[in-house]
Write a protein that binds this DNA or RNA. Structure first.
Length: 305
DNA sequence: AATGGTCAAGTCAGC
DNA sequence: GCTGACTTGACCATT
């Protein structure tokens, strides 16, 4: 088990997901922004290594507008060396990396133009992971998409569209249960048809489910991951107290987290903490999980080589 | 320097 | 039919 947090670190003092307005787009602006974001990514990874946080979700804003027609820069070429340097660092520390395109990425859209744009967006994400030289355990997680008034047809469309994708995308995609449309059971059905691994989101499952317990749900999701995919990925958060449903908690609650570790004990997975205070919770989770036999540490973490 | 409306992209619930 | 939530802050025009 590796523990991580998504996209940004609030204490390193740099902003790794800087962007700008399309209206003010220029290649110069893009280059300086990407330079900043990559530099900051490395700083966040340095922080993570020092705290034994070996799982990290890279922001989709790393290269702003990468999939937009306005962007004609060959960003992989322009930043080849930086990507390579960061990738080497990641591999050296045996870190796990994931990405999560946002809600505009819809494989199953009824509108083929939206599907096309989604493929471009996915290609950009895969391009980042490829540029870092990461193996097939570096995943891109997406939701199944919209229901469009016909759940079955929308699931069918997802499966059909998936088959048309390039191998470079197929091998990195994983699907995650959401909290309003598609349950874990839906994702498992898609997995049976496509072979896609399923990310289990604990909070989404608490809000929208088919009655499965957490251990049972996790067990089913875990079985969808093959050897080349790496350990199953689990997203963990708890409901914000008094918050609207689905809101992420402000900080990690130690008791609930210990109970979760206890509850899931026989199954090993990598854990993404979707909690507001980001790395703070990850640091706490690492210390709580330190006694768990599943938990992995860097050789140097306890003062060794 | 501070402020507040706005930001590439889509869906869907709720008015 | 339109607006806001999702995620959330940061951009940037205006003062």
């Amino acid at each position: 088990m590796k523990i991580g947090y998504p996209c940004k670190n609030l204490s390193v003092g740099c902003i790794g997901d800087k962007t700008f307005r399309l209206k003010s787009y220029s290649e110069e602006r893009l280059v300086s922004t990407v330079q900043n974001n990559l530099q900051c990514l490395l700083e966040m990874l340095l922080f993570n290594a020092a705290h034994n946080i070996l799982f990290f979700r890279v922001t989709s804003d790393l290269v702003p507008f990468a999939s937009h027609p306005a962007c004609r820069l060959n960003w992989r070429g322009a930043f080849k060396e930086t990507f390579s340097k960061i990738g080497t660092f990641i591999r050296l520390h045996d870190m796990r990396i994931s990405m999560h395109p946002d809600q505009f990425t819809l494989i199953n859209s009824q509108d083929t133009a939206i599907f096309k744009r989604s493929v471009s967006e996915l290609s950009y994400h895969a391009g980042v992971l490829d540029a870092l030289g990461l193996d097939d355990t570096a995943k891109i997680q997406i939701h199944l998409g919209g229901v469009y008034g016909d759940r079955k047809a929308s699931i069918d469309r997802f499966a059909e569209r998936f088959e048309t994708l390039d191998e470079a995308l197929k091998k990195r995609l994983v699907v995650e249960n959401d909290d309003t449309r598609f349950t874990l059971a839906d994702c498992l059905e898609v997995s049976r048809r496509t072979g896609l691994p399923v990310v289990f989101d604990v909070l989404h499952h608490a809000i929208l489910n088919s009655g499965e317990t957490v251990p049972d749900a996790l067990q089913c999701a875990a079985q969808t991951w093959g050897a080349a995919d790496g350990l199953p990925i689990v997203d963990y958060s708890l409901q914000k107290l008094e918050g609207r449903k689905g809101k992420h908690a402000e900080f990690l609650e130690a008791n609930a987290f210990e109970a979760f570790l206890e509850q899931t004990r026989p199954i090993d997975f990598d854990l993404m903490l979707e909690i507001k205070d980001k790395e703070q919770s990850a640091v706490r989770a690492v210390s709580i999980a330190a006694t768990d036999p599943r938990f992995v540490t860097l050789p140097s973490f306890h003062g060794g080589a």
